[in-house]
Design a protein around this nucleic acid. Sequence first.
DNA 1: ACGTTTTACTTGCATGTTGAAGTTTTTCGG
DNA 2: CCGAAAAACTTCAACATGCAAGTAAAACGT
Lengths: 166, 166
Amino acid sequence: MLPGMEPGAQPRWLDPDERETWLALIKVLLRVPATLDAQLQRDAGISLFEYLVMAALSEAPERTMRLSDLAARAEGTLSRLSQAVARLEKRGWVRRRPDPNDGRATLGILTDEGYRQVAGGAPAHVEAVRQHVFDPLTKAQQRHLREIAERINATTGPDRRKADRF
Amino acid sequence: MLPGMEPGAQPRWLDPDERETWLALIKVLLRVPATLDAQLQRDAGISLFEYLVMAALSEAPERTMRLSDLAARAEGTLSRLSQAVARLEKRGWVRRRPDPNDGRATLGILTDEGYRQVAGGAPAHVEAVRQHVFDPLTKAQQRHLREIAERINATTGPDRRKADRF
DNA sequence: ACGTTTTACTTGCATGTTGAAGTTTTTCGG
DNA sequence: CCGAAAAACTTCAACATGCAAGTAAAACGT
């Protein structure tokens, strides 16, 4: 029972228009990340999540970031991040170092080899993003998309995440 | 290195506008499914994927579908679906039956109890969809969103799974 | 100053997912 | 028709993830 049918109930069902929108959106929501994941896995041997982590580091001052900031940036739990960093560390692309300013914190640092890895993989990734997201849209649609996404992000803010959250 | 910097390369980098759009979009792509997943897990004890499977069945004639069609509808691999159906079968919400018309195929059938489960969970799910997607948008934006999503789906079509390198 | 909370991770376990076989049934080319 | 290829699953082993605990260091309240 996808939202949008079944009368006789009090909840605000989706009307036919909203329903169509929702069906189209959920496809995007599930397909685009899967597509990018597949592309990265194939061309660079890493997951989208791992790419986001390294990409964030590559843009940070000193290519360094606190793990909790990294987790937020990559939209994942700290637990997930911790294990992702462990994997990247084994591959020699990231290393850990205790934060001198806060004994609780750990810093993740992108190594030179890690930087090369991201830099090497980025072009193909960008191309995939273009191909699957930007190219099919008009300039006006790209503008709309940005506004829509920002609006949604404003409400879907950092609420969820049961554990790792306190 | 998120798309949008580093000159001196031949690939078409994202310009600052595109970059902002992409950053906003990827947040949506990662957060919205996670949010809905959490909501369903919490309120109904099932994953988004399982919900999509049961929802698809609930709308099908005889509440019955071939597993491969189900997999396509829920945007997952057959392997994933097979195991999801196994779980739902254990809970008594779905049962399997060989397709009389094709000895290779298996049909998935939503039981009465399964139907009650979906019907019971749907209102809260719809409410979550509204809250996180539709409510923050104007009517015009909802219209745009639909067009955008349809456009993207048209290209990101079923190429998925497996390389297309040569 | 000191006990309590909060923050920042790490780790172990149960579970879910992927990818590569393996099985059975259909379909297709000749 | 017949043998080869494809389609529709199922299963198994690696691997990734979420959740619940556990540890350690700062912050906080009195």
